[in-house]
Design a protein around this nucleic acid. Structure first.
Lengths: 355, 355
DNA sequence: GGCTGGCACTCCCGGTGCATGATTGCCAGC
DNA sequence: GCTGGCAATCATGCACCGGGAGTGCCAGCC
């Protein structure tokens, strides 16, 4: 696998990618020299294109058609040829204002999803921040039945989560009140990761009548905080974009894309997987772990909260994607979420933006 | 508009609808007499078909093609010709077991959505039960910032909801504690519909330092309880089914269907709208309020909780829909939700929520 | 009077042939 | 090493055509 293309081949590949992404049609040598000012004749371009095809960067849908980039071609383009075109300061500010205006985390993420899909015209994927890094603000215990108690966790990000307890033996209102008090006394302000152990700790020293309850709470906290409940974790938006004309030919492909998008676990894993190679990450066509998505690409970036990686945003689109712009938008949304999140959590400190 | 078809026309219309729904191709007179044992010749059938077309029940895509039902034809079929074929006892039981096994409300609804889309092969729409009928169990106020307070409502069904308050003036921890106490003193056990007024009532008599806070809480309660927040209210599943071959020809149609499904407000209104005419309800093609969905139908049914209508389930599919089966499945899912819900709200079950 | 078989007609659909145009690969010449 | 020229390839659009499906109509039959 060649590592570097000479300058002219690179310019031709770049032009092919850009032209094809814009127009959606295979691009030929004549069109290239006329539209992209390459300064050589079409015959020369043809020779270069033949070499590029030989090397696997471009392909012909059929003889006597122009060339289209292969996954490898897009990959080279993204890695070596694409010019970063960050959003203008004005655009970034508008974006940030929109997100900062959200009343809570959920609305923030929902807006992020909407704006991401609108700006890119692809499907938006927004993963909620893991509760892990937030601090516990309050734990509320509410008795709903003789043996059933609802545990509600409230984090300092405004996130609220809950678990139902089904106890072996009935408890009294009084027991519940004692447990509530004990738990909050001990756990408020803790990192969520520490909370289960702390609660378990106070359970061991507690009087026997509240001990089972506290143990159950500890368990619920452990399970409840480790992973957000399904359906809360990832927000998918703008899926209608995937049915836009020019992206996919066969209905069959569109259907399998929608099937994949419905599997939240898969989408989540795909994003995680993508970010293993870097941040922001671009995964093109066959680089994705799913054959159904061989005609798709993913662009993803993570956003931080309280100094460490918290959640992920990304888009799923066709391999024929405007990578530079998509990267810019995804990164801008990620950093705006980061800033808006800082506003919501309350600490108004400035944080480093990444680019 | 003729009110009733004679017996033979009805039999022919019925056969046309059933055949077309099964095969997806326009059905001609020959096929009709051969496949449906009408006991007359094709010429006779042709004469009747001409009359049916004249009356608007069927149409020809083009000359020399068979006939397909019009919206009016489907409507007559649903109203007068379709044989109800309820699910078998075994199927109902399996369904009920599946739903009853859910750990909380959200999982219940999610499973309902999945099973509904699997069984019907259309897109499933599940509307969460309105909080309205439940009783308030606890209101928690959590201060997240100087002017931001999170209000968490906990209902006796285990449902948890929250709103963020953005106050004009900063409040102290102490004020928040006082307000929390006052609110819970007054509001616990109330029907959610009464709660806002009660809270507003105690606000008027409260000391000036907590009064703005209480008013804000009253307002949050009013807004928060009247309608669940977006994204929690309706669960859409099985959307990939809408891209199945044989339903829609043009990608354009598929796209507009997906666009509509993303607008939760619209979907909600559509379901409400449909149920105005009856329960279960069927809306066919142009009967739907949206022109984009002229090629779609909706089948919906409501489910009760605590004796009155609580939520809605339904499917969105092509007008070429298996109405009898869909009706049976939708009704079975609705009644299974009802029963599973009774188990959850009842004695020991758990129920869930959002966060 | 209503049903039926027959028949001419319409029109989609698939296949074929052909002209067109886009694009390529190659080569000889500069 | 680049360029212009040229033959070759092949999708695309169009016209044409025949088969087939389905229809509407009508005369005749029960």
């Amino acid at each position: 696998m060649e590592t570097k293309l000479d300058e002219r081949k690179a310019a031709i590949l770049k032009a092919i990618v850009q032209d094809y992404v814009r127009e959606g049609e295979p691009v030929g040598s004549k069109r290239l020299v006329e539209g992209w000012g390459l300064g050589v004749s079409s015959a020369t371009v043809r020779a270069e294109m033949a070499a590029l095809e030989e090397a696997g960067y471009i392909a012909q849908p059929h003889t006597s058609a122009g060339r289209i980039p292969t996954d490898k071609g897009y990959r080279y383009f993204v890695d070596a040829l694409a010019e970063r075109t960050p959003l203008s300061e004005h655009q970034r500010q508008t974006l940030l204002d929109l997100l900062r205006d959200s009343s809570d985390l959920e609305e923030l993420l929902r807006r992020a999803s909407t704006v991401l899909s609108r700006l890119t015209r692809y499907a938006a994927l927004v993963v909620a921040p893991a509760l892990d890094r937030s601090r516990l603000r309050h734990i509320e215990l509410v008795q709903l039945g003789p043996t059933s108690v609802l545990v509600v966790f409230i984090a300092d990000t405004g996130r609220v989560d809950k678990r139902m307890l089904d106890l072996d033996a009935p408890v009294t209102e009084h027991d519940v009140a004692r447990a509530r008090h004990a738990v909050n006394e001990a756990a408020a302000g803790l990192r969520t990761s520490q909370t289960p152990d702390v609660v378990a700790g106070i359970a061991t020293g507690a009087p026997p009548e509240v001990r089972p309850l506290l143990e159950a709470v500890a368990d619920a906290v452990r399970r409840g905080l480790s992973s957000p409940p399904p359906g809360e974790q990832i927000i998918v938006g703008g899926t209608a974009n995937m049915a836009a004309p020019g992206y996919f030919e066969r209905l069959e492909q569109v259907k399998s894309v929608y099937e994949t998008l419905e599997e939240q676990v898969i989408v989540l894993q795909m994003l995680q997987d993508a970010l293993q190679v870097g941040d922001p990450a671009v995964r093109i066509g066959h680089e994705l772990p799913l054959v159904e998505l061989a005609a798709c690409s993913v662009v993803a970036a993570s956003y931080d909260a309280a100094g460490s990686s918290a959640g992920t945003v990304g888009v799923l689109g066709p391999t024929r994607m405007d990578y530079p712009r998509t990267l810019a938008v995804v990164q801008a949304v990620a950093s705006s979420i980061e800033q808006a999140l800082a506003g919501i959590t309350g600490s108004s400190g400035a944080e480093p933006t990444r680019n």
